[in-house]
Design a protein around this nucleic acid. Structure first.
Lengths: 242, 242
DNA sequence: ATATTAGATAACGTTACGTCACCTGCAAGT
DNA sequence: ACTTGCAGGTGACGTAACGTTATCTAATAT
């Protein structure tokens, strides 16, 4: 079983040695082995924990909170929350870029620009440092509960469901068509899950997919893009016509 | 001339009142008018300055440095650096998203995942908090100097040049073709600038455009996308065949 | 007449480390 | 045998950018 010293870990993960010692000090990440001379040695598991910590920190969680929830979350759960976070950042960035480009252009056009005209565009996406819970709420509380009533909470199927959506995004990025082996697998799983969720109530099911199209502000859910929805629908269609 | 109180400014820009008072305290942003009772009033110019500060802060400049350079930079210059920053963030985010999706997928596939396989993907874009100067270097030092020798530094043309590239990106985003009024304007300007830069040396010119295609790591320059390059070339072609 | 609101100052608290002083074991060069 | 350099260690104090709390004032609403 390989072990790494502080220096090695620091270099590999691009953090300072001081940081590692600090995390040890506050009992956030205690290396699993200590020399008779006091040297710290980190195991593979320690590195995974560190990875978790770094990701959670990037969601701007205070270290205190990280310590509390660290062992309650799997690496996968954390990665998924990270993914959601990144997606949100991505869409925010795109509007920011557009706004900034507009502003630069405005300066080129009018030479005296009033604050009033600028202030509309200058709105930066506000920093939601306390909002981090949201990235988990979606996993913790049932995806649906808040928007559609009368559906029981089942954490396992929720997990499966999210996993499927990720897989679809993955397929899209790798240009795998919904009319493929993977597509039909996804389709079958989707139908299974949706059936067990809605117990054949196709009316509710329709409503559900509609809701998923709305932007996040209105539903409180992470929005699924049209592209993903279409892919999902084509997967399911492909399975039923096979 | 309208003036705003601390509370109004704080609400409008989504920052805390404490922050405004603090900026006053450290002489970073002193409101241009004070009541006989001590109340702060911010003018339109003050708001522009605040905007500058906020943008520079988002590039993770310490407030100390911001104060030093604040009056040396125009709002436009700052916006452009901000734009560069956003573009870099954007491309980093995209690889991050891909990596995260890959990791999640890996977990679904193999149930025991080794650190070795993870560590390759887990590389986050390193935080370049000291690298902020780069976003300005491009404006300050001549774009070319570092890569192509024998070209004299001219800050004004550099500015024009960057401005043109922004305009191209702007056109692309708004689906304006290079074979349009705007396109021909851009083309003419591009030809003018490039000529005055390279004095008709078409060999060097070729080399220059080639260099711009390389990623940032190798050149130290902000990379121009293929799309922009193609647009530029079509603009110039359009002008010459007109 | 009182309560609420929006502003002010002053002073101490906080997070996540950076930095500094000083100590230790070990391998290599002189 | 001695120094040098390096990689590691432990305090302890320093820092940035505010948050928080206590206390005060002036103006407005009820």
């Amino acid at each position: 079983m390989k072990r790494w010293t502080t220096g090695e870990v620091a270099k590999q993960r691009d953090i300072s040695i001081r940081t590692l010692r600090y995390y040890d000090q506050i009992n956030l990440l205690t290396p699993s082995y200590r020399d008779d001379k006091g040297k710290r040695y980190y195991s593979e598991e320690d590195l995974f924990t560190l990875e978790k910590i770094i990701i959670l920190k990037s969601l701007s969680l205070p270290l205190e909170n990280i310590r509390i929830i660290l062992d309650k979350l799997s690496y996968k759960q954390i990665l998924i929350s990270h993914y959601n976070y990144l997606q949100e950042q991505h869409s925010k960035l795109e509007t920011s870029i557009l706004n900034t480009a507009s502003l630069i252009n405005m300066i080129d056009l009018e030479d005296t620009l009033s604050w009033e005209s600028v202030s509309k565009l200058a709105k930066r996406p506000k920093d939601e440092s306390k909002k981090w819970l949201d990235y988990f709420q979606e996993e913790e509380k049932n995806i649906l509960l808040s928007t559609i009533p009368n559906i029981s909470n089942n954490d396992e199927t929720t997990q499966q469901y999210i996993s499927l959506l990720r897989k679809i995004e993955w397929c899209i990025k790798h240009k795998i068509s919904p009319e493929s082996e993977e597509g039909s697998q996804i389709g079958t799983s989707l139908i299974e899950i949706t059936n067990s969720h809605f117990q054949g109530d196709s009316d509710l099911m329709e409503k559900f997919w509609e809701v998923r199209k709305l932007p996040a502000e209105e539903t409180g859910l992470y929005p699924i893009s049209e592209e993903v929805l279409e892919f999902a629908e084509r997967c399911m269609a492909y399975v039923t016509t096979e």
